[in-house]
Design a protein around this nucleic acid. Structure first.
Lengths: 332, 332
DNA sequence: GTGAAAGCGCTAACAA
DNA sequence: TTGTTAGCGCTTTCAC
């Protein structure tokens, strides 16, 4: 059995409460005694039992981190950043994957609820109403979703999508298409809205195709519809969808960027290594992971600390998957 | 405050222990009473406090999962599989990233020790001795490392590396190079050993270059040395290193696969999307994640359940980054 | 500055 | 089948 506070107390010749104080409020204990306790603890290899501590303090020093799909390359850098920052702040983190299923998401929140001090919802698939309801019981911070009353980190993909439309319009494209992501994705909505607005500004056409699975498969399947719509410029929900679309287009005989231009979102390794290298909207995932933990801890420490909504810039990275509009309509 | 067992007991008109039994040993309680308790619990939204339960039972129903680098594309599919399978078995999992640092790894194990029932060490960077020592206190399962007395899941990268050498020798290559990974990586050692043996069998030359960081950077930096050695066939520690090496070789004027062939390891998306598409040794990461959780739970349930070492097959996937040895030595 | 005692939410003998 | 009781490891008043 593991070493408990009692054994340390005995070894140091003090009462358990003194040992407890030595670790949780060292200034309340005589320097000399403190030394003795610390020595005894080290000697025995004492490690406080966090679960037991949680029982009395109500603080677990654990966080939950819920994402749609750990294997989607968008998430790992965010998870890594969040985890590593949380550790620095003294928290361990439960990571859970919902497989894009809102019901799993809700169930996960329930299971985690009593073993964490707060939960980070990254690109949630739950409805705003559900999140708000659950958020009444447990501190939340949300990434890529705006929920009334909850701290949020938003990556301003809208401005990126606008820039992408500017870029495509500047290259002479007059018919654009947006390949949306999952129905409940806030990011997808932002892209659609902002691209629509920018298209209108430029007086170019824009069609919407979705929802699609946020995977290569999803993009691959949507390729035909894009061609159908006669678009020569595409903005995809994410890099994976963009890559899938490029494959799908190739099958249909359309080459990127010669015949059609494609823009991704996320700036994942996948996009960087794809051939052609993806023009993409870079998302500040690591900053977001860290910032979200920051906001969450703040919400935990001072309940009702106001609702900070942090907006992070995104960047359009022009690479090889976009080019000038072909002079003649490919479909003519 | 959250609903406790006491409130449920009161609402159902029974004693707390009956409520407890209703959930942990339902067959010990009268069907009728059980119904009443369950109804009351549902009504109040009762969720047992796992931490409190852990205090009495000594079982947390939590697992730790420690990896070298969450953002390395090798890990996410494994993490996902492990997490999802653990959930099915009723366990939540703490995921932690050591940033390739053995000291962080050891510290993490210490912090996690009292809040989990066992820890999964994936591609650990700690020495065998350290792992064995820590494993005395806490159930471990290890992936890609063989530690005496601990359950392990091994991906047989050695046979893959042998196949890669066969493949390269078959293409006429007579000077091969291995680009190793981190010093403490078991996988790296296996590759080196197996490639060496196979090279000897074929009577071809094989040089070793390492250790390298398990990243594109690492491969990029190693490219010059490969050329220096006059190798025309390379087996890299992982896909990332392979991709970096290809870039580095390009800078030095060597084109893949025309001038030199490169084989990766892992079969990550990155390799599949790279140009040229990477010939690589596919690792069964998802199977491994699931199997490791299985072994770990087994070790937890029946202490000293014997040391199962599970060996998983790997596959050589021939794609575009390998080709025939150039007729004339490029360096001649 | 230190000890005593109560209690966090739950489970596990033991009684009844 | 159900209630009673003690106690898991720790923190936190309250006395001294």
């Amino acid at each position: 059995m593991a070493v408990t506070i009692r054994e340390v107390a005995q070894a140091a010749g003090v009462h358990v409460s003194t040992v407890s104080r030595t670790f949780s409020a060292p200034n309340l204990v005589n320097a000399e005694t403190r030394e003795r306790v610390i020595a005894a603890a080290a000697e025995l290899g004492y490690r406080p039992n966090l679960a037991a501590r949680a029982l009395t303090t109500g603080r677990t020093n654990n966080l939950g981190l819920i994402v749609a799909d750990i294997a989607n390359p968008f998430f790992p850098p965010l998870i890594k950043a969040a985890q590593s920052y949380a550790r620095v702040r003294g928290y361990q983190v439960f990571v859970a994957d919902t497989d894009e299923d809102p019901r799993v998401e809700e169930e996960l929140i329930g299971t985690l609820a009593r073993q964490v001090d707060g939960v980070l919802l990254v690109s949630p698939r739950l409805s705003n109403a559900a999140i708000a309801r659950l958020g009444a019981d447990l501190p939340f911070a949300v990434v890529n979703r705006r929920v009334k009353g909850l701290p949020a980190v938003l990556m301003d993909v809208g401005s990126g999508a606008g820039a992408a439309v500017d870029h495509l319009a500047g290259l002479g494209h007059r018919r654009l298409a947006v390949l949306g992501g999952p129905r409940s994705s806030w990011t997808s909505g932002q892209i659609r809205r902002a691209a629509g607005a920018a298209a209108e500004r430029h007086g170019v056409d824009l069609s919407y195709h979705g929802p699609n699975a946020p995977t290569e498969q999803g993009g691959y399947r949507a390729a035909a519809a894009v061609l159908e719509a006669g678009a020569t410029g595409v903005i995809a929900y994410n890099d994976l969808v963009a890559i899938g679309a490029i494959e799908g287009l190739a099958v249909e005989g359309a080459e990127v960027p010669r015949d059609i231009s494609v823009v991704g979102v996320d700036d994942t390794v996948a996009g960087r290594l794809n051939h052609p290298k993806l023009t993409t909207i870079a998302m500040p995932t690591q900053t977001a992971g860290r910032a979200a933990v920051d906001l969450l801890l703040q919400a935990i420490d001072v309940a009702g600390s106001g609702t900070v909504q942090m907006i992070l810039e995104t960047d359009l990275l022009v690479r090889e998957s976009t080019g000038p509009c072909p002079a003649v309509d490919r479909r003519a």
